[in-house]
Design a protein around this nucleic acid. Structure first.
Ligand code: ZN
Ligand code: ZN
Ligand code: ZN
Ligand code: ZN
Lengths: 137, 137
DNA sequence: TCTTGAACCTCTAGCCGCTAGAGGTTGTAG
DNA sequence: CTACAACCTCTAGCGGCTAGAGGTTCAAGA
């Protein structure tokens, strides 16, 4: 049995974050000491490690909640888990694509200023007007 | 003079968002009609267009506030504006790099399941444990 | 001129995923 | 037995909006 501080140390998840996960239903309500302090089992430690890693991979709290449920029920086919993961992969790819467009435009805008600005600032000028952009964003 | 709805139509920024920008100091307080409704000038229209485009490029409200001030003061050298833009470019690049790492891991994890899972789901298994990951994230 | 009704007003609360702080209680080591 | 770190709950804040309640104003048509 671990205190919340010990669980925090072992998983690298901050104490208030653990309480937040409990409050949002992602972590189960743990047992309590006589004085009402949380006491965690090894199972809770594993669950929190799963959550931490899934969060690090960018999955949402809701998705992780689904995955935790799916993991707990070995009878269910794992197609849903696969779907969540590949939907997330697609979302990540979409975000990358968007950011790359931004990167290209920003590179152009920042590059303009390397020549130095005479009079009006070319950075501010380019930021002001989308017509100078090469793509939508 | 435009009403807030007209300004919204002309810039593509939603009405509550315009009010939010005003409240956060990004848009100046406009004149008001006799009945207390907002009335915008062409200058306000241009300012909001600038804000919209800078937001579309991912700049924060705070950064845009700085840029708007810099733009309004043609005496100031534009080094600060360049600095904001290139710092933002760096931030975008950092985010891309992070997302690409995620993408690689997720691709691996999703790919595992293509073979089909016998017994334990390989997606859930991989999500649970960082040791199978090829990089930090 | 009067009447609709769309558009406007302010204010509050919610979204996500935490994080910070106040003010009080418990656990543990010396 | 005392001291103090660690715990407890509760509330509020971050960014960048978005939604809704409940009330007022504007402009077009009769
Ligand atoms: Zn410049
Ligand atoms: Zn553009
Ligand atoms: Zn599977
Ligand atoms: Zn990993």
């Amino acid at each position: 049995m671990f205190s919340i501080g010990e669980l925090s140390r072992r998983t690298g998840v901050k104490v208030p974050t653990i309480r937040y996960y409990e409050q949002s239903g992602l972590m189960e309500q743990p047992e309590r000491s006589a004085g009402n302090q949380r006491r965690y089992s090894v199972a809770a430690l594993e669950r929190l490690s799963f959550i931490r890693h899934a969060r690090a991979l960018g999955l949402s709290i809701d998705d992780i909640g689904e995955l935790v449920e799916l993991a707990a029920d070995p009878e269910r086919p794992c197609g849903e888990a696969h779907a969540i993961a590949s939907a997330h992969l697609s979302a990540v790819r979409a975000r990358i694509a968007k950011l790359r467009k931004l990167e290209r435009e920003l590179k152009r805008i920042v590059g303009l200023s390397d020549a130095g600005c005479l009079g009006e600032c070319s950075v501010i000028h380019s930021l002001a007007d989308h017509r100078y952009c090469a793509s939508e964003h």
